[in-house]
Design a protein around this nucleic acid. Structure first.
Length: 939
RNA sequence: GCCGAAGUGGCGGAAUGGCAGACGCGCCGGACUCAAAAUCCGGUGGGCUAACACCCGUGUGGGUUCGAGUCCCACCUUCGGUACCA
């Protein structure tokens, strides 16, 4: 009975915490600093919890439990991101309503998460599919819809900092004089707007597909063709916040890697827009421009391009329009019309994937038209090619084959002239060009009668030519982003309805706030409608809002609910507002946010965007939501050893096998085109040799050893329930933390779980009499003062664990607890006070066992709110120290000296030590480095 | 291609520029047992030794330093992100 039995201990304490609401959080506790620790809430899939979930959750739970003991008022909530495609697909497949499958999945997840003993305040649980929650998602959408971005607005934020650019109420939008339709003008400036955007329509499946469901222009399920067709959809103008989303990363405690990913995603670039007229009378056009200036939109026969390299303008020898570019029809010459039409049609059939996949050979067709290079009056041919994308920049480029590899390939293929306009120095002006030429240098061959760039370094040349263009109304400085506006609608049932209605003129009107939430209609048939229109269209009663008004039938994407859930946790039951502003001021920002790296870009970018709109509109007090972000690493399956067999059954070395893909399945081939099949090997069949592993029975066969992502198809998924059943939640928690640094990718090992389980059992036996029939203290645990050595171990452990937890080094914190147990299991007398300290130190990591030990040690209430143990720093210091003595930097001896010895005495002691002398004999000491921690003789 | 991270025993991993390999797994030996499991004790980077000692060792090559796993330069490999972005 008194063996370590997590299956008995753990439910007991989980019930205790639950019933007494041990972890309920009070708002605004006087005298306690606040700490908001957030997990990325899970999508409750039908597959149940994955071992990746508890990794991050355990890390945050340790921080929370530790910080509570350090006197912090800690907010640690959990909830469910429950709208989304998989729930709907599962519902369609099983013909169960998604609300039912979602409810079941949430129950499973809640049970699984509770079985791990996390210290969440369950009174704050949120569920994005709950109308009381999505009411406020809709409210935020309406706020975004009510906002426009004023890039020039100068204002002062609460901290007194001056800011430029702000999201402002649409009512404050100045309407330019002479605007015919002010409402339409306002709609065109809103941060939420409607536009015709292509969707992936699959006629065979009768449904619109998400981008992730389309593979190579075909549906992932069934492989049916997918066509792109335009549909009226909602967009969010995230591009307006591009600068701030990139710039305001600077003050955040995020890893440089994630910051860089976000910056790349925003993809800000600086360059110039330049206008190339397609006109017979270039001189007249140029003169007009010089007088009137550059128009907001180019004239009908002007090609406007965006370039980051305006300094190479003199090297532009052709132009390329995206095939969809509206100018194409207008400028194509009759003799090219047929070729252009054919090319455009072919391009339209290609999916985005196809267009980017066919990387190597460039295709294109000349339009027959010529545009005039505004810097030198030279006519250059205008082509169309699908390597130019309509949705980046202006959808048109000037091509400088001399200095852009992409243009170089195209020019080679179509025999277009290539001209050098950048060189290492002026002497190299006529050196032959190739694709590997450096991009930066000085400008050459770049002059006309009013400007010369020749000899200017690239950066100067950019500035000079841009100023020249601006002065003449031919171009202007411009900034571009890779970031696109966010396609915010889905043709799906299981999502938040848009809180808007549409009139017969296709004008959008907000549903009044008092009518929120706009509930999802109870559709019996929630399957896709068989037309590109959303399934909500089938709820005819619901759609009809009034005689003149119908509801929007698109729904919001899964990201919507997760964009702001961290704010709802602050005040989850408020039915008057999304949150109380006073609570927001108290708790925000999130002090620590932990989650998987798969959300490093989209979720974090989207929620930062919403947060900034809320900030500009005065609903939140911080410009950024997540002050510190930590991305946990992926947990891979157990290491696998693989060799291959060919059809004849002979072993084949992994080194000579290639893995390919055929129709989504993995295919293996070996030298000579032989088909081979992988064979998973047991560890005993494998031997380490040289650089890698070989087959034990045949050392000539090299074995592939690696850990793979967990996946159903590979059969290497670890179910946390099974681990908890076998070893207990404390072991699972401890193991996941002990595997290595939180942020590292690391393979699972059941043997490792057993290791930490053994440690916990040892800890149990250190305190509990495991030979008795009842649970009682081990007789060696006594109410006595620790020996000096024991006191030192206790102090060192407290100090070490504390340091490690502060720095999130959970793996080394655990190893220090192991050292403690190793030291005390050898002790014949174990001071009770030391055992109590151990229980407190263990509590953040293995809370169930810690509570149980605490109780057995005679305490009647939870240790969750006990103060963290303290120690006397003097105990960390020994009376004597071992000083390494080096000769030429090599360790030769360890010298034991009294603590606080002077450097002179230390050197003297080192010189007179027999062992050291033997190394110095007959040598000349050229130099001696004496430090408090070491002595080094240089001879 | 570009951006980012990382390469340390048989394995997961420790090491404020100062004793490389803490802790755990595995393995070896011992105790307990009729035996096994569990548990406890000891050992465990490689080479050479009877042993002490000594030599070699943190992906590769260079550099800085009295001293480099750690800092700098170049390269190789692996993983992650991203890709016709003008």
């Amino acid at each position: 009975m008194p063996a370590y039995h997590p299956q008995r201990i753990e439910p007991k304490w989980q019930t205790y915490w639950d019933e007494r609401k041990t972890f309920r959080v009070q708002d605004r506790v006087p005298g306690k600093p606040k700490l908001y620790v957030l997990d990325m809430f899970p999508y409750p899939s039908g597959a149940g919890l994955h071992v990746g979930h508890p990794e991050g959750y355990t890390a945050t739970d340790i921080v929370c439990r530790y910080k509570r003991m350090r006197g912090f008022n800690v907010l640690h909530p959990m909830g469910w991101d429950a709208f989304g495609l998989p729930a709907e697909q599962y519902a369609v497949k099983t013909n169960t309503h998604p609300s039912i499958t979602t409810r079941n999945n949430i129950e499973t997840f809640r049970r699984q998460i509770k079985s791990l003993g996390f210290s969440y305040d369950w009174d704050r649980e949120v569920d994005t599919t709950d109308p009381d929650y999505y009411k406020w998602t809709q409210w935020i959408f309406l706020l975004i819809h009510d906002t426009w971005y004023d890039p020039d607005f100068v204002w002062t934020d609460a901290s007194g900092a001056e800011r430029v650019g702000k999201g402002r109420p649409i009512a404050d939008l100045p309407i330019p004089p002479g605007t015919i339709d002010p409402d339409a003008y306002r709609d065109s400036k809103r941060l939420a707007y409607r536009a015709q955007i292509p969707v992936n329509w699959c006629p065979n499946l009768g449904t619109v597909l998400a981008n992730e469901e389309v593979k190579d222009g075909r549906s992932e399920v069934g492989g049916h063709p997918v066509v792109r067709m335009p549909l009226e959809q909602w967009m969010l103008r995230i591009t307006a916040y591009g600068d701030r989303l990139a710039a305001e990363l600077d003050g955040l405690d995020w890893s440089p890697a994630i910051k860089e990913m976000q910056r790349n995603w925003v993809g800000r670039s600086e360059g110039a827009e330049v206008d190339f007229p397609i006109t017979a009378d270039f001189a007249a056009w140029r003169d007009t421009r010089a007088q009137v200036g550059r128009p907001e939109l180019p004239e009908a026969d002007v090609v406007r391009v965006y370039t980051t390299r305006p300094d190479t303008l003199f090297g532009a020898t052709y132009m390329v329009l995206a095939p969809e570019h509206p100018l194409v029809d207008r400028i194509t010459t009759p003799d090219q019309a047929a070729a252009v039409a054919a090319y455009r049609e072919a391009a339209a059939r290609k999916s985005d994937l196809d267009r980017t996949d066919l990387a190597k050979t460039k295709t294109g067709v000349a339009t027959g038209a010529h545009a005039i290079n505004p810097v030198n009056g030279e006519p250059i041919p205008v082509w169309i090619a699908d390597y130019v994308l309509m949705n980046y920049g202006t959808g048109a480029i000037m091509a400088v084959p001399g200095h852009a590899e992409r243009d170089f390939e195209f020019a080679r293929a179509f025999e277009i002239p290539i001209r050098r306009v950048v060189a290492r120095d002026l002497d190299q002006a006529d050196a032959p060009l190739d694709a590997a030429d450096p991009e930066l240098g000085v400008a050459v061959h770049s002059a006309n009668d009013s400007i010369t760039l020749d000899g200017m370094p690239t950066a100067d040349a950019k500035r000079a030519i841009t100023a020249w263009l601006e002065a003449r109304g031919l171009g202007r400085k411009a900034v571009n982003y890779k970031l696109r506006d966010w396609l915010f609608s889905r043709q799906r049932y299981w999502g938040e309805p848009f809180p808007v209605v549409i009139d017969e003129h296709e004008r959008v009107h907000a549903v009044p706030l008092e009518d929120l939430p706009v509930r999802l209609p109870e559709l019996a048939d929630f399957k896709p409608s068989g037309r590109p229109e959303p399934p909500l269209g089938k709820a005819t009663e619901w759609v009809r809002y009034s005689d003149e008004l119908r509801r929007e039938t698109n729904t919001m994407p899964q990201w919507a609910g997760s964009c702001w859930y961290y704010l709802r946790y602050l005040d989850p039951k408020n039915d008057q507002a999304a949150w109380d502003p006073e609570l927001e001021k108290y708790w925000m920002p999130v002090d620590l946010y932990v989650g998987g790296a798969e959300h490093a870009v989209l979720h974090l970018l989207y929620s930062r965007f919403w947060h900034k709109v809320l900030f500009d509109r005065g609903y939140v007090s911080t410009p950024e939501p997540f002050q510190r972000l930590v991305n946990q690493g992926m947990i891979l399956g157990e290491t696998e050893y693989t060799a291959f067999r060919d059809d004849a059954g002979a072993w084949v070395s992994a080194a000579e096998v290639r893995v390919g893909q055929n129709e989504g399945a993995e295919v293996w081939t070996a030298a000579g085109g032989r088909n081979v099949a992988p064979v998973k090997l047991a560890e005993e069949q494998v031997v380490k040799k040289g650089e890698g592993f070989v087959l034990a029975e045949d050392p000539a066969i090299r074995v592939d050893s690696r850990a793979h992502k967990m996946s159903k198809s590979r059969g290497n998924v670890i179910n946390p329930d099974v681990v908890v059943e076998q070893y207990g939640a404390d072991s699972l928690r401890l193991y996941e933390m002990f595997m290595g640094p939180l942020e590292a990718t690391k393979p699972w090992s059941m043997k490792g779980v057993e290791g930490v389980y053994r440690f916990l059992a040892r800890a149990w036996r250190m305190v509990v009499d495991h030979e008795a029939d009842v649970i009682r203290l081990d007789p060696r645990v006594a109410d006595v003062e620790p020996t000096i050595d024991q006191a030192k171990i206790v102090a060192r452990t407290i100090a070490g664990v504390e340091d490690d937890l502060e720095a999130h080094r959970f793996n080394t914190a655990i190893s220090k607890l192991m050292e403690f147990v190793n030291a005390f299991t050898g002790a014949e007398v174990r001071p009770k006070k030391a055992m109590e300290t151990f229980a407190l130190l263990l509590a953040p990591m293995a809370p169930h066992l810690a509570e149980e030990l605490w109780e057995i040690l005679g305490h009647e209430t939870t240790l969750a709110h006990e103060p963290w143990p303290t120690y006397d720093p003097a105990l960390l210091i020994d009376d004597t120290v071992e000083i390494p003595i080096q000769v030429n930097g090599k360790l030769r001896h360890l010298l034991t000296v009294p603590l606080g010895i002077s450097l002179e005495d230390l050197e003297a002691a080192a010189r007179s030590d027999a062992k050291v002398m033997s190394y110095l004999e007959g040598k000349t000491i050229r130099k001696v480095i004496v430090k408090e921690k070491l002595v080094n003789f240089v001879v």
